[in-house]
Design a protein around this nucleic acid. Structure first.
Length: 230
DNA sequence: CTCCAGATTG
DNA sequence: CAATCTGGAG
């Protein structure tokens, strides 16, 4: 949930989510529709699909236990190096090296105060050197909280990171339509393409492109003109 | 308008 | 490498 989404927004949804799906088994057995509905408001809906898939993998291949290996975690959908490593650090309190936006800000502030463009590869060795291997969880929490605090005073720090990229406009974009389409399908259970065109006031051509994309990613199924949640 | 405890794809 | 995914707070 925390991938590219503000903590303040996640914290409210999270409690609701774990109440509804308290363990991997519940999540693996739940319908995709229920999972996506519980996810509403968080954005990046593909993460909801991934999380359910991960629950199924853990139930079927790992006897219901979350692996503590970065290499294995990285084979799960939507889990890259940073998320895999943070799971190892936070869930298991085992040493791992990773960077996220708040950690990045701390190291840019302290070690690259003048440099114009900073690559994560330059930061990683410093993360490794500074890590408290006796209690990585506590160290990373502190580091990230410090980064949050720094942002208030220096909101521009991460713009000097090579990873920084200005986000394209959301309003009027295909992304916005995509979100609206999924929300409508979730609220109506089934929907006709003609109804979507009327509600969203967009061309059939554009809608088709988005629907095919949603189908390909496993959100919906299309039978003739009828759309349902996968 | 901006960005967010990023990952994946072309 | 760049583009794409999402929606709401500030």
């Amino acid at each position: 949930m925390l991938q590219q989404t503000q903590t303040s927004r996640v914290s409210e949804k999270f409690l609701n989510f774990v109440k509804k799906f308290p363990h991997f088994e519940a999540l693996s057995k739940a319908s995709l529709e229920d999972v996506l509905k519980a996810w509403q408001g968080l954005g990046y809906n593909r993460r909801a699909i991934a999380l359910k898939k991960i629950a199924e993998i853990i139930i079927n291949e790992f006897e219901g236990n979350l692996p503590d290996s970065i290499g294995i975690l990285k084979t799960f959908p939507q889990i890259g190096h940073n998320t895999a490593s943070s799971i190892v650090a936070f869930a298991f309190n085992k040493p791992s090296i990773f960077i996220e936006t708040n950690i990045r800000r701390v190291f840019i502030y302290f070690f690259f105060s003048k440099k114009e463009v900073i690559d994560d590869k330059e930061i990683l060795p410093l993360v490794e050197k500074s890590l408290d291997t006796s209690n990585p969880r506590k160290w990373y929490y502190a580091l990230m909280d410090y980064g949050v605090m720094l942002k208030k005073k220096f909101p521009e720090l991460n713009k000097r990171s090579r990873t920084y990229r200005k986000q394209s406009q959301f309003k009027g974009s295909d992304r916005e339509i995509r979100g609206k389409v999924l929300k409508l399908v979730l609220n109506h259970k089934t929907l006709l393409i003609s109804e979507l065109i009327e509600k969203l006031k967009i061309s059939r051509n554009k809608l088709n492109k988005i629907l095919i994309q949603l189908q390909k990613e496993g959100f919906i199924k299309i039978n003739d003109d009828l759309i349902t949640v996968e």
